[in-house]
Structure formats: C-alpha cells, structure tokens
Design a protein around this nucleic acid. Structure first.
Lengths: 159, 159
DNA sequence: AATAGTAAGTTCCAAAATAGAACTTGTAAA
DNA sequence: TTTACAAGTTCTATTTTGGAACTTACTATT
C-alpha cells in the first residue's frame, strides 16, 4: 500500500491522515496556531530541512489548509495563513497536546498551560457530545455505517 | 533534524507525534478502537507491509499504548489490546475523523456515523473547556509558559 | 562599487525508511 | 503427506528524507 492510496480509503481518519499524517505537517500547523507565518520562522522553530518545508507548505496550500498572502512587493514575499479548513484542525492539535501533557511530560509538568478567556480559568480540553454536552467515553460511542459507506457498497453491487 | 530528536522538544504536540506521528500508527489505533486485535487483521484492513506492522506494533507495546495478551497456547499467539494510555488517544482519532467528515467526505457524506448511547442521539464530537463546558474557539485560548518550560529555562541559566 | 544580509526557495547526493515478495516456525486439520 | 493458519523475519529495489550548498531578487552598509 502506497501512501497516496490512503486517501481513497472510505474512512475519515485515513483521509485526514493522508494530508496531516506525516512527520512534519502537524508540527507546521502547531506553529501556525502559535502565530508563525513565514518560511524561515517555520524552518528555525521546527528544524526540518528547507526542502521538506517547501514540500509540506505547498501541500497545505494545495489542500487549502493554508493560503499564501503577499506581505511585501519588491521582492514579492508571501506568508502562510490558516484558512477556515486549517483552523478546524485545532481540536486535533489540542487533543494531541493534552495526551502529550498527560503521558509524555515528565516530572517537570506540561511545557505549556492554557487559559480560557471566556471563563477566565486555567483549562484543559475535553471531548464532548454535540447533543448532550457530556464528556465522551469511547465505550459509549457506537459507530454505524453512514451514507458514504452505503453509497460505496451500492456502487460495488449495482442491483 | 532527525525524527528521534522530535521527542526531546519541549512541546507536548511534538512529543505525542514522536510516537503517533507517522504514516501508520494512528491507522493501527483506529482499528484498535474498532475492535481489531490480531496481526493479520491489522495487516489486511490497513494494507501496510507485515514488516512495518511488526515494527509499529512493537513500538506501541514499548510505549505501553498497546499490550500483548496471549489468547492461545500451542503455539502461543498474542493479541494486541489498548491500555489506558492508548484509550486516551480516542479524542485524537475522533477529532481527526470529524475533520475528515467535514472536509474530505465528498458528496456521499461521511462513511461512518456515531451514536451516543448515553443520550441516544446521533452525535458528533466537540472540544469543550474543562472548566466552563463551552465549546472552544481557538482565539479564546491563551497559551502560557507552564512548569515544564520554566524548569527548562532554569536549567539553561542555573542562577 | 563592492560586500553582506535577508527571505524564500531549488538542486544535489548520501543515508534512512519503506513496500512487497518470499521465507520461517510451530501447530492443527484433511 | 499436504495444506492451512497466525505471526512474524529476511531480502532487495524503490522511495523519502536530511543536510549542505546554491540561486534569485532585492536592501543596507562600507
């Protein structure tokens, strides 16, 4: 199985990972959420090769997760900004960060803490049900075949 | 920057990605949450090479995200089960799935839908503040230096 | 006018990671 | 005796990556 084939899987996790599931992309997006916008900043903060960075940024632009916006003429220079599609990856990064805080932080504690300006408290994120608002326990979630899968299986045996 | 160095970064996202940030690991864990436990099942469902699968499963066992449990003697066969540390990656997978549903599903709609047995509704997941319960908007979250980073900067200039 | 600096890349090559197929081990069933 | 199964291991060709040097288009400094 080649990496590009992952995108064809009828699975939203696989499809998402086909874009962000490599070594660097989520680190680039983490930096975006911290305000980084320019090529050199990404390169210094993340420490990946310029070659790879070019690649990844282009891919993110192709998929409309970032967009290039000129910030000067002569010579033209662009910065990379999150689109709405990109901003909506925030929960992925925050849940990763929370897991890292809980399981990888060592005895010094988490490197970063978060404050929720809306309520004024030091906070952490929780995954909640959109309907009842309760925190989600994996055992209480039942996956069922959705329209995407049904459409596929109908194409497979067309009557 | 080599991939193994990522783990040393004072960033919980980077540390988490040093374990789960490769092409296959999160797909393996997705299958775990769907109930897959055995080598051959993983291999067939994901389509990665046996070699890679061996590697990734061992890594997940080393990091105590999965553990091996014997399910027969003669010959001894093991299955792979999520530990608590592993189960706590559920929010990462669900936020990825939600993003994939929203942005990668095509016109047939999401392949899988979820039902929350606790409240009985078809649901999707939301990221909420642990303190006030409101849904989180990235702009309302302020990152501040935490104890992990402070400890580091004190080691850097000892007095 | 010459030199250095900056931002955003591109080119090149050696090294590392991967895919896919074949092989191995221990066992049971036909 | 042959076939099948589960869970790997070994092998080689291919792909991806890291890192350093180079490029382009400008601005600032000497």
């Amino acid at each position: 199985m080649k990496w590009d084939d992952i995108q064809e899987m009828p699975c939203s996790v696989a499809r998402a990972l086909s874009i962000v599931g490599d070594r660097w992309t989520l680190l680039i997006l983490r930096d975006c959420f911290m305000g980084t916008k320019r090529f050199d900043k990404f390169q210094k903060q993340i420490g990946l090769s310029r070659h790879r960075l070019t690649d990844r940024l282009n891919k993110l632009v192709d998929y409309e997760i970032l967009r290039k916006a000129p910030y000067q003429e002569k010579p033209v220079r662009h910065e990379y900004r999150l689109t709405r599609k990109g901003v909506e990856l925030y929960p992925v990064l925050m849940t990763l960060a929370k897991w890292g805080d809980n399981w990888m932080a060592g005895e010094d504690g988490p490197p970063i803490e978060y404050f929720h300006t809306t309520c004024g408290h030091k906070t952490s994120v929780e995954l909640c049900c959109s309907e009842c608002g309760e925190e989600i326990n994996p055992k209480e979630m039942i996956p069922k075949m959705g329209p995407g899968l049904r459409a596929l299986s109908e194409k497979a045996r067309p009557k």
